[in-house]
Design a protein around this nucleic acid. Structure first.
Lengths: 138, 138
DNA sequence: GTTTATGCAAATTCTTTGCAATACT
DNA sequence: AGTATTGCAAAGAATTTGCATAAAC
């Protein structure tokens, strides 16, 4: 992505296009997969991590980036219901409430499967729906 | 869950049923949603966190628990492709390779949607397929 | 008696904040 | 001038390891 395009994107989201932010956008755009903050830090090691952090926070607030693997922000464990080695035939959907932060298991909603491209072998699926739960939706 | 059942589960997975592990299994089984390590630590505050950590690692290795929100273990950012406030109409599937740890965007695989129970409002979906990527699958 | 599990302390890593200096309008 | 942005340093939080003791087989 060229600089002009980065600036355009920033302006579209009402963010002042500073030099640092332009580099960050460019780096994010060119990455082949979503980056962690740390990876982004390492790719643009001219920018201090506190600033990377603040830029990403700002981008999120302005809906310029979205966060993958949730907003619960953490590794979570639950018991497997199936007892076979290697895979889990009880994969159900989960719901993450963006207001109260709680995770709900939607046990009776099986995870829909998709056809994978050639060469990919599926083991399990994380299907996390994010939104507002009944309690918070009032 | 009673103690006998916890012991049975541990033995089924070839794990020695020590007192600590029995408590951890019981706690995980009774939790209404997947727990973070920290939450588990707090629920069973008799057990040191290093031990909780080692027990969970063991459980994972023996396929007794599975990990939600991936094994990349981290919050990741990527550019939004849609520019509308509040939601993202470019939600596509992601693939996490359990061997090399890389995340792949499956851009041409849209995330399948499911019908939510009454009261839940969806905002976005994380659809993460875990398995082995073409490179690692040889 | 040998192996396995545990607790404590401490090392790492990752995320976040305080503050003074700098850049922008 | 006044507000927004930045870097540095350091605080917090979460995860992970080393090691000596205790428990299990």
């Amino acid at each position: 992505m060229d600089e002009a395009k980065s600036i355009e994107i920033l302006l579209e989201h009402d963010i002042r296009p500073t030099a640092n932010r332009i580099v960050l956008i460019k780096t994010l755009a060119e990455a082949e997969y979503p980056l962690t903050m740390t990876e982004l830090e390492d790719l643009v090691d001219t920018i201090d991590k506190s600033n990377v952090f603040r830029a990403l926070t700002l981008f999120r607030e302005h809906h310029l980036v979205h966060v993958l693997q949730d907003g619960a922000e953490a590794v979570r464990y639950e018991l497997c219901h199936s007892h076979e080695e290697g895979h889990d035939d009880d994969i159900h959907a989960h719901f993450y409430c963006e207001k109260c932060g709680q995770i709900f298991c939607l046990n009776n909603i099986p995870v829909p499967k998709v056809a994978l491209p050639e060469g990919y072998q599926m083991n399990t699926i994380n299907y996390l729906i994010k939104g507002i739960c009944p309690k918070c939706g009032g």
